[in-house]
Amino acid sequence: MSALGESFFRPRDLGEACARVADLVTRGVPHHVIAGGTDLVVESHLRPPSTVAPPATTLVDVSRVPELVEFAVRGDTIRLGGGVTFLTVRRAPALAPLRVLVEAGKDVGAIQIQARGTLAGNVVTASPAGDGVAALMALEAVVGLRSVRGERAVPLRDYYQGYKKTVRAADELVAWLDVRVPAADAFQSWRKVGTRLAQAISKVALAAVVERDGETIRRARFGMASVAPTTSPLAHVERFLEGRAARGLDLAGLDAAVDADVSPIDDVRSTAEYRRHVARALVREVARGLAPK
């Protein structure tokens, strides 16, 4: 038997996917929704061998659900289907204005992972090291949650409640992500600090979208990975910057704002001290980028 059980459903559309998941939830059947499989299949095969067989898992494959793999440009909002892959983000000309997400997409694994990994999968997995999530936060993403009960919209910055804890109910699917298209002259940057260039999990990653009126910072949105129990916005940094002149920023004040936003830990990939240092450095790098000499 496969490590992932034997029951496999491939709904034709989003409605059927929601109905299937609702039915499994109601009947208490252990199940997973699978798209690219870049988390689920890895975890199922790395599970330590046990004398007790894992519970049979029913899979609902949404990798080809048409509504999920599409995207639509609607003025200054782009609706990205949950099943849009990182490779689609990189290659679709209509998505090029989302520069911060395009750049983050290049750093998600290598091309084989980018071709399978989806935006919704990145959101649902809820890793503290969610590179795509950080970029989506900087783009002020709103998460569209769909179930047989209806649809609701939750800002991505309110979606995570703690380590691997989210507001998503068991019967809800991430159907779409609405992102705000930054002004054409917005400063957008993506920086990932990892052990090597490709195929590495972030030690710290920062996504930034900053809009200015002349010298004054009008709007600043950040997403940072690997410095807190969840991938997080930087609310203190955003408040610190907005309304200020980009030139001559008080860097000690900026560092203090970063400190208020992050709570890094020591783990196998890095130390809390190093992560705090890099978090400050990456935010300072954005500040320098806003006021080039």
Partner: peptide
């Protein structure tokens, strides 16, 4: 290649490759 895109066959389930 799955529909022309490079993927890792260790992360794709057979059922996902139908069609």
């Amino acid at each position: 290649l799955l529909d022309g895109l490079p993927v890792n066959a260790c992360l794709v389930l057979a059922g996902q490759a139908e069609g």
